[in-house]
Every structure is written in structure tokens, then in C-alpha cells.
């Protein structure tokens, strides 16, 4: 999707989506995602978002927890961070339990995704959503909104993994390297963070990964762009 930036206008797309949408909650959210054209990274209000899921398959897997933290280029506001554990409709796979450390008992008392979705959207509204690997959050959120409101939701995101990929995966040198079977730089969250001397976190959860993603974007912007970088140029 990053390649279509020139032909594709988020502004036009969102405007059209908003007017076609019949669900007020979703419609308002879409309108909140239309940002001023000259908004700079220094002015932007971001929110880092992370889902823990039972797997990567959007059709069969489900969200088990959601973490988010609002931030600006200056400060990550941990005090406003939010975290939800949600009850999936299917049974939890055993291996994802190990990964996320979320127990069955924690989940059985949890609300369903449908119940928390509006809260999540209101935390994201008006902010530039930042994720690491946009596929998961975009697709799973789209499906959740489908499920709850019976309408799709696709809106711009800044993807810290894609930003790493631009630097470490694109270009003829890396293509050549790949052709010759060389190992490319890892752009996984933990490895990307190391390149900016960010600390290694030992505990993983939706919220700590959201904080980690926010820290990574601060580092990427401070290393690679000026404060005047237009935020929509980072959209994916």
C-alpha cells in the first residue's frame, strides 16, 4: 500500500468513506482521522496501538488484549495508557497463552471485544495511530468494526516496521543482498529498537509493546527526519 502514495489520497478516501458511512460512531471516527495537510510530526498527537491475538489469521484468530498509549514527539504519556483484556469467542490456543501470559481465568471475567470497541475508538479518535506491522492492527480492527457495526473501517496508520523496512530493506543493495541469499537486517520490534539504543524489554503485553512502539517512532523521527516533517507523508 505504501507504493501507491502518489496516486492515492487518504483525504479523498476518508471523506468519501465518511459520507457513505451510516454508523455515527464509525463516521465520527473516520472524520477525526482527516488531518490538516501541513500537520508536522512535532505538532501531531499520536497514539501507539498494539493487539495481542491468538494468531495471524484474521479469519480464524481473535484479539485477546489491546494496549494503547497517547504520545507526542516530546512525551509518551504513560499515565494515559490503556489496556484491555477481551474475551474471544473461540477457545484460546495453548501456544498463544504462553506468549501473552494471559490466563483463562483472566479472560473468562473479561468483557467481549464488542463491549470495549467504542472505548478503544474514542481513545484513538483525533490521533495519528502508530503500530509496528500495520497488517495485524489494521485487519483485526477492521474485522472487529465489521462485527460490531456492520461496516468496514480502514484509516491511515504510521507503521514503525515499514519505516525500518524503508531504511533496511529497500534499495538495490538490499535487493542484491537478498538475491545472493544474504541475511537482511531484522525489522522486528525488539531488533529495530536495538539500533536506536533503546532498552530491551523483558515483559511483553499489548501495552508494553505499544509503549515500545511509541519509543521507537520517537527515535526514528529524531534520527531520520526534522521536526517539520509532514506527518501524512509517513502514512501507510
Amino acid at each position: 500500500m505504501g507504493r501507491v502514495k502518489d496516486e492515492f489520497s487518504w483525504r479523498a478516501f476518508l471523506t468519501q468513506q465518511a459520507s457513505a458511512c451510516e454508523q455515527p460512531v464509525v463516521q465520527q471516527f473516520i472524520e477525526s482521522q482527516i488531518f490538516p495537510e501541513h500537520l508536522t510530526v512535532a505538532e501531531a498527537e499520536f497514539v501507539a496501538l498494539d493487539f495481542e491475538t491468538t494468531g495471524l489469521d484474521v479469519e480464524n484468530d481473535e484479539i485477546v488484549s489491546i494496549g494503547l498509549v497517547p504520545f507526542t514527539l516530546d512525551r509518551i504519556k504513560v499515565s494515559q495508557a490503556r489496556h484491555w483484556i477481551v474475551k474471544p469467542e473461540c477457545n484460546l490456543k495453548d501456544d498463544s497463552i504462553v506468549i501473552h501470559g494471559i490466563t483463562h481465568s483472566a479472560i473468562s471475567d473479561a468483557p467481549t471485544l464488542d463491549e470495549v470497541l467504542e472505548q478503544v475508538l474514542s481513545c484513538l479518535a483525533g490521533r495519528v495511530v502508530v503500530v509496528h506491522y500495520q497488517y495485524i492492527e489494521r485487519e483485526f480492527l477492521n474485522r472487529a468494526v465489521q462485527h460490531r457495526f456492520d461496516t468496514g473501517l480502514v484509516f491511515p496508520m504510521v507503521d514503525t516496521m515499514w519505516l525500518e523496512g524503508v531504511l533496511y530493506r529497500a534499495g538495490w543493495r538490499n535487493k542484491l543482498k537478498r538475491l545472493l541469499g544474504g541475511r537482511l537486517q531484522s525489522i522486528r520490534l525488539a531488533d529495530s529498537r536495538l539500533r536506536y539504543a533503546l532498552p530491551r524489554y523483558h515483559l511483553h503485553s499489548a501495552m508494553s509493546d505499544a509503549i515500545a512502539t511509541a519509543e521507537l517512532l520517537q527515535a526514528q523521527i529524531k534520527h531520520r527526519y526534522s521536526n517539520n516533517k509532514i506527518v501524512t507523508e509517513l502514512f501507510l
Binding site: F71, I76, K222
Partner: peptide, 14 residues
Amino acid sequence: VATSVEISYYRQGT
């Protein structure tokens, strides 16, 4: 304290 902090990244030399 842990839930009240704010976080910021500073590039070398700033």
C-alpha cells in the same frame, strides 16, 4: 510512580 511517568527519546548531542 511507574504509571505516572512520561517517556522521551533524546538523540545523542541534543
